[in-house]
Design a protein around this nucleic acid. Sequence first.
DNA 1: TTCAATTTGCAATTATGTTGCAAATTGGAG
DNA 2: CTCCAATTTGCAACATAATTGCAAATTGAA
Lengths: 140, 140
Amino acid sequence: MTADDLTLFKKRLAEHGYQVTKAREATFKLLVSAEPQTIREILVKAQGVVDRVSVYRNVGVFEKIGLIHRVHIGWKYKLELSDEFVGHHHHLSCLKCGRVIDIEDEKHIDDFIKEVSAKFGFEPRRHQFEVDGYCKDCRS
Amino acid sequence: MTADDLTLFKKRLAEHGYQVTKAREATFKLLVSAEPQTIREILVKAQGVVDRVSVYRNVGVFEKIGLIHRVHIGWKYKLELSDEFVGHHHHLSCLKCGRVIDIEDEKHIDDFIKEVSAKFGFEPRRHQFEVDGYCKDCRS
DNA sequence: TTCAATTTGCAATTATGTTGCAAATTGGAG
DNA sequence: CTCCAATTTGCAACATAATTGCAAATTGAA
Ligand SMILES: [Mn+2]
Ligand SMILES: [Mn+2]
Ligand SMILES: [Zn+2]
Ligand SMILES: [Zn+2]
């Protein structure tokens, strides 16, 4: 993670009236250290450093102020930095090794959403696209 | 649900070496009665008829043999009949009233998957696309 | 009808996430 | 820097969702 990321992190907390604490900084760094990851993975890494309840609570805070968001990966959700940090994207997820590949969309998805929203009078807010399969190394 | 659906249900069970039981038939009928729905909703309807453990176990069986599948709806998953029954589709999901609208894709998604899979040497197996927002009635 | 194999239901257990509260930490005022 | 009200933390208890072991019931094939 860059120094800028950490600065932005602290700025966002302050903007929303949250304090910058040891536990929050540690939790955020764990979040960034591998991405995306399950809250379970974060809890394991946090053992002895930050209490599980505080991890849950602060992950909740981070979500609420838009620092991170959830993505669906194989019937669990994982946590990743928000678009502000890493740019909007979707995922290819390997059913064998668990590898997650970031993919960028170049229009297909947005066009589809626009089309289908118009058709049903729907006002889209968020979307998520996920492809499960086998990665280059696992498809042998 | 049609008589054909029930016939296909029994056929698939038999093909995979599973018995056709009261509990399984009852659970499948509950599944079909409203669609998609959470396992929680099914458990409530099953009270006094099928034990919760059997519901869990049989929903697991149904998934395994491809009679049903999960779809992501607002950070929960819901269960719905597989494509074989209802045709492949995706969902618009209302953040306010919870309404779920089935949408069909006309190429966008498949093209995108083809494109991006080629790029990463990925072999796609399953995919899921979900749009959250506000339905016609709720956007006022 | 008979019976081995499968399935069911109940109790106990495990996994996951939440709440109440006293003690510690934080950040701003003085 | 010092002080202190407000926020945050960690622990224990609680709540909810899902899984497992096992004896009893059901199923389907002979
Ligand atoms: Mn990503
Ligand atoms: Mn549907
Ligand atoms: Zn792989
Ligand atoms: Zn609605």
